[in-house]
Amino acid sequence: MHNKLITLISSFVLLLFVSQAYAQDDLLNLLEQETQNKQSTEFVYATFKATRIINSQSVETTAGGNLNFIIAHRFGKINDGWYELWGLDNATIRLGLEYGITDWLNIGIGRSSYLKTADIYGKLRIIRQSSGAKNFPFSAVLFSNVAENGMHWSEPDRVNYFSSRLSYASQLLLARKFSNAFSLQLSPTYIHRNFVETKEDQNDVLAIGAGGRIKLSNRVSINAEYFYQLPGTNSEKFYNSVALGIDIETGGHVFQFHVTNSKGMIEQYFIAGTTGDMFDGDIFFGFNINRVFTLKKAK
């Protein structure tokens, strides 16, 4: 009798156990388990809203087959006062086109009214921040440009070479999207100018830039950037570039409004050629408008 009872109980326990093993009552949980077994790599997107943080390049690239038209303005100095309508009477402009050959390779051209300069550049993404199967903590992008100063020669009687008009900037852009709201970028920069005005000016300038953004909402962010020129690499009459701005994204456009002490909109001019003393009120109001056209649609 006693034996029988034990058998009955153990059978019952076993039955319960077996039924438990089969009854996966929640199919969604089962799906969850199945998909976790096969983890994929998730690449970080939208570290910044635009391909510029403010003046400088961000790690964002224009997507493959897309053409990005960038209209940028910097007005005059705010401390010019009423007579110049706090700078609004004087505007310099840069018109730029940027094309995504692929998602990771961009080429661009631009024309600045400031120093009548044409520029051409390339941008190559080396690695993307990712999580999941493949984990990488930051994105890295190489940027390099050539600019041609188109101003009349200051001393036309001298023998002037075309190469004297050229200057170059190269950057390694390293950025991490720490959270959906916060991204930070470091931009070591090397600038070479074939020709400089005075003996005190150096041909080569080394600088390190830092830039970041904080999102206020899905479509609005506050951005800031600063470029520190390594001591002794540039004439002391040039200030470090500072900028503070706001990005507003509306469907196909990104509007960027900002204040900065730099008038130039290409790397060699704002990083190594900023003449505005921020503490003296030499602040320029400006904006960039980014408009993306999809020339080739993804398959």
């Binding site: 969604l28 799906l31 997107y45 997507a63 897309n66 993306v292």
Partner: peptide, 24 residues
């Protein structure tokens, strides 16, 4: 029946649309 799909797995013709879909 149970169905599950990653939102980031949706592919659009326009890259910008895809970014805005996920982000905004």
């Amino acid at each position: 029946v149970a169905v599950s799909a990653q939102m980031k797995g949706f592919e659009f013709e326009k890259a910008l649309m895809q970014e805005h879909f996920n982000e905004n």
